[in-house]
């Protein structure tokens, strides 16, 4: 599709803008638009699974995390102004120009070298995957077949990565001392309309998220994207009702037990007589469901830690310390 050139140019412009703009808040919004264009670009490069993951995780969740992290600190505009008027400013500008020239020359050499010497020696993995993924794994979506059956060893570490990343975030954000930033997020009452209508949408989004998880092996989707959709229900729910509703302590335990389930299930993959029976397809669905719920719990914890890092909401105050 020649229209992708338009998106590529827009991406480059947005990347430059998000680096050069002075205020971090604006840079983050540019980053969100950049990853939105990135997601649509993947769709035109016929990678629907990837564009889903990038749109869901890259543009919506990443932007939200950035904004929450820099929330308390961009308010002091006066401080930013004073920094950039000092005489050191000219020195910094000169440094940026110098490095710009160095990067342009080296980048040009590398890129021209790359396009001069790139060659393709054939793709045996591609040849084999495309021809035999239906018979081997019983999945209709080759991408799910790969990351749930051929290369399931990687997916185990990916689930572990999400578990550890969320453990780290919860661990760092519970740091007791240090000056508390102003808590203005939790106390703000939200508009009534958003609360009412988003209340209407929950069952629909939950059903849709579960649909994406369950037939991840047929149409694009699967554990990670479906889990993120379910987690978005928690996020909208926070905007509707001020309360947390879900206890982080239980969520952390749930996430770890789902992870153990994933490891146990992938161990079943090793028994050869298990695999050529028709259990293969059921194995895919079960793995997708487990990954989906694990990602949902994980992202929900991630969001609650970030949004509630200052305010321990009253109904979970007692138990929200680390389990």
């Amino acid at each position: 599709m020649p229209v992708t050139i338009v998106f590529l140019l827009a991406m480059v412009v947005l990347a430059v803008a998000s680096i050069q703009v002075r205020k971090a808040e604006i840079a983050v919004i540019y980053l969100g638009i950049f990853s939105l264009f990135n997601a649509i670009f993947y769709l035109f490069y016929s990678a629907p699974d990837l564009s889903l993951a990038e749109a869901v995780i890259g543009s919506a969740l990443a932007t939200a995390l950035f904004l929450v992290a820099i929330k308390g600190y961009t308010l002091r505009r006066t401080q930013i102004k004073s920094e950039y008027r000092s005489p050191k400013m000219r020195l910094a500008l000169f440094g940026e120009l110098f490095w710009g020239v160095v990067f342009l020359t080296i980048g040009f050499i590398v890129i021209s070298f790359y396009f001069g010497t790139v060659q393709d020696v054939g793709k045996p993995a591609w040849y084999h995957y495309v021809r035999s993924f239906i018979s081997d794994t019983g999945a209709r979506n080759a991408v799910t077949a790969i990351y749930l059956n051929y290369r399931v060893f990687d997916t185990l570490f990916e689930a572990l990565l999400l578990l550890v990343g969320i453990l780290a975030t919860a661990y760092f954000l519970e740091w007791p001392e240090g000056k508390e930033p102003e808590e203005e997020i939790a106390t703000k009452p939200d508009s009534e309309i958003v609360a009412r209508i988003s209340g209407l949408l929950y069952p629909f989004i939950l059903l849709y998220g579960f649909y994406i998880i369950v037939n991840g092996h047929l149409t694009p989707g699967g554990g990670f994207q479906g889990g993120a959709i379910l987690a978005s229900v928690f996020i909208i729910r926070y905007f509707a009702q001020r309360r947390l509703g879900i206890n982080i302590f239980i969520l952390q335990r749930l996430e770890k037990s789902f992870f153990l389930g994933i490891i146990a299930l992938s161990m079943l993959l090793l028994l050869p007589e298990f695999m050529n029976s028709d259990f293969k397809v059921f194995h895919l669905v079960l793995m997708n469901i487990l990954i989906g719920f694990k990602v949902c719990c994980g992202l929900a914890i991630l969001f609650f830690c970030f949004i509630f890092q200052q305010t321990k909401v009253e109904d979970t105050k007692g138990r929200s310390e680390r389990g």
């Binding site: 490069y45 016929s46 990678a47 699974d49 990837l50 993951a53 990038e54 995780i57 890259g58 969740l61 990443a62 995390l65 793709k123 993995a125 591609w126 995957y129 495309v130 993924f133 080759a142 991408v143 799910t144 077949a145 790969i146 990351y147 290369r151 990687d154 997916t155 990916e158 990565l161 999400l162 550890v164 990343g165 969320i166 990670f224």
Partner: peptide
Amino acid sequence: VDPLPQALMITAIVIGIS
């Protein structure tokens, strides 16, 4: 199209977010 890069890059996106 080649499914392997897409499967690996879903992992890379999850790495990026965490």
